[in-house]
């Protein structure tokens, strides 16, 4: 039968196409190389407990409830993809943070805002199990926080 030969030819051609595509792709990221990257706060991302995280991120700044809105589902069917929206109407927010109590590491994301940005951030996160999710907004003199309990039916953080 001719089939194996057909298959072989098909694969050979698609292979070439892939190689060309990869070549084209490899050229593009060079533009970004000249950029200097801010340092990733490794220490904060390795803290397990949310209270320790809060202390490490904000030090002795007073933490108050309210002033920030966290839009999260009450129940997430799939813990691998849980949509989260943090928003605030506070003037001049400096940083936003999102933490999940029962994840292996509490901090999910830390957002630094400049005056060009609005206090808004939308991201999808993984949750290992049902947990409280905390949103923080840091302003010049205090930290505003709100939390939501999100029920997870199927976990998304390993195991």
């Amino acid at each position: 039968m001719n089939l194996p030969r057909r298959t072989f030819l098909k694969q050979a051609f698609s292979g070439t196409a892939l190689a060309v595509a990869a070549g084209a792709g490899l050229l593009r990221p060079t533009q970004a190389l000249a950029r200097t990257w801010p340092t990733w706060p490794a220490q904060s991302f390795h803290i397990k407990h949310w209270q320790a995280l809060e202390h490490s991120l904000f030090g002795s700044k007073p933490v108050v409830n309210g002033g920030v809105h966290l839009h999260a589902p009450l129940e997430a069917e799939n813990g691998a993809v849980v949509p989260m929206v943090i928003s605030t109407k506070l003037a001049a927010p400096k940083r936003l943070a999102l933490a999940v109590d029962h994840n292996p590491y509490a901090l999910a994301t830390l957002v630094n805002l400049t005056p060009h940005a609005v206090g808004f951030f939308n991201v999808r996160i993984k949750m290992g199990k049902t947990s409280r999710v905390r949103a923080y907004v840091e302003t010049a003199d205090r930290v505003h926080t709100v939390d939501r309990l999100v029920k997870v039916t199927i976990g998304g953080c390993g195991g």
Partner: peptide, 12 residues
């Protein structure tokens, strides 16, 4: 304008 640091908890 926005600099986002992410951990492993951000979805695929």
């Amino acid at each position: 304008a926005v600099i986002t640091d992410m951990g492993i908890a951000v979805s695929k």
